[in-house]
Simulated scan of single mutants.
Amino acid sequence: MGAAVRPRDGDVLVHAREHSRGETAAGTVVAAKSTSLTALGGSISVVFVRLFVVGTVLTLVAAALLAVTASGRLRDRWTDAGVRYLGIALVPLSGVFLVMFVISAGDQYFRYQGFMMVFVTVLGAVGLAIAADKLDARAPTGTGRVLVLILLLVLAPVAAIGYHSSPYMYQPTSHVPASQLNGYAASFDHRQADIEFTGLRGGPQRYVDYYYGTQYSRFSFDFPGYEDGTSSATFANASYDEAYGETRYLAITQATFEREVLLYDGFRYSRAGFSRLETTPDVNRVRSSDGFRLYYVRATDPEDD
C-alpha cells in the first residue's frame, strides 16, 4: 500500500450524514465534525462552496423565476402554469424540511434537500432558458445561449467532482493486502484463547470474519476483543494496564500507521504513540511481518508492585 497523502485545505470532507447515536442532536454532530475538519487543516467555507455552489446558483435562478411568475410578467401561459405548480409543490417540502431541522429529528437533512433540488433543478433550467431568450432579444442573436452555455460548462464539472466518491473525499480502499491477512491469520493460529485482541478505531472484526467465516464469527463464535478498540488517550499515554487491567493483543498494520500519522497528522493517534509501543515496559512485539505487527501488552501483576 502506498503512502497516504496528508490532506490539504478542504481535501477531507467530513460526513454530517452519519446517524446520531442516543440523543445526540444533529447540531452537536456537525459541530464535532467541523472541529475535526478544522483541526486537519480543512475549511468549512471551502467545503460549503465545493458541495453547494451549484445548488446555490440554481436556487437563485429558480427563486428569480418564481418571483417573475408571481408578479405576472411571464407571458407564456403554459410555462407560467408549470412554474406555479412546481413552486407550490416546494411549499410543503420546505415546511417539512424546516420543521425537521428545528426539532432536530435525526440528521438526514441532505435527503430532504436532495429531493427538493429535483424541483429546483427543473425550475433553474427553465429560468436559464428564459434568461437566454431575453438576452437574445436585447443583444446580438446567440449571446444569451452562449452565456448560459458558458455558465453550464463551468458548473457541470464542479458538480460532477462532488459526486461520491470524489477527489474531495478520502475513501480508504477496500482492498486488504495479503500480508495483513497472513499476519492476522498467523496471530489467530498462535494466540492464547483467553486473551482479548484490540486495535485502533476498533477490533479485528473484519479479519475474524475472513478467517473464521462471517456467520460463525458473528453468531456462534465469541471471539475475544471482536470489536474492541483502544482509545486515543490510552494509546497516547501508553496507559494500557490502567485502561484494561488485563493482558491484551494489540494489532497494528502499516495502513493504520499511514492513515493516522500521514493522512490525519496524528489527530487521534500520534506518531509518538506508535513510538511508545517499542519503548514501553510490558509491551512486547511478538510478531512482525510485511505491513503487520502484533504486540503483547502484559498486565502488571499486583505482586510486582
Rank of each mutant, 00 (worst) to 15 (best):
F119H: 09
G27F: 03
A4N: 10
G225T: 00
L86S: 06
P157I: 03
L155V: 01
A70W: 09
Q171W: 13
T35S: 13
V146H: 09
T79I: 15
L262H: 12
R276I: 01
S34C: 12
Y296R: 12
L93T: 05
S232T: 08
L123R: 02
S36A: 11
D228C: 07
Q192P: 05
V158K: 06
I44T: 14
F110V: 12
R218Q: 15
S94G: 15
T79S: 06
F219V: 09
I103A: 05
L147H: 06
R268W: 14
W78Y: 08
P140I: 07
R21I: 14
R21D: 06
G127Q: 00
D136V: 02
A272E: 15
R84K: 11
S187C: 00
R17C: 11
A25N: 11
K134I: 07
T141N: 09
V297A: 09
V283D: 08
H190S: 15
D265R: 15
S239H: 11
E196R: 14
Y109Q: 10
V91E: 00
E278Q: 10
Y249L: 04
G72I: 04
P92K: 02
D136T: 03
F197S: 01
G183P: 06
A160C: 11
V102E: 06
G229N: 04
A63K: 06
V99I: 13
V297L: 12
A26P: 04
R206T: 11
R248N: 08
A70D: 04
Y216S: 07
V126G: 02
V148M: 09
A160G: 07
G114M: 09
T69D: 15
F292D: 03
A160N: 08
V30I: 13
R293L: 07
A39G: 10
P172T: 04
L66D: 09
H175W: 13
F188S: 01
L294W: 00
A129R: 09
R287S: 10
A272H: 12
D11M: 00
A255Q: 15
R287H: 09
G266R: 04
D241N: 15
L250R: 13
G95I: 04
F267C: 03
S45N: 10
V208A: 15
G225M: 03
R206P: 00
S239Y: 07
L263Q: 03
L294C: 01
V57L: 02
G144Q: 06
R138M: 08
S217V: 02
R138A: 14
N284A: 08
R276D: 11
Y163T: 15
T38V: 11
G95P: 03
R201I: 10
F197V: 02
T279R: 13
D301F: 03
V120G: 01
L250W: 09
A193H: 08
L250K: 13
F219M: 12
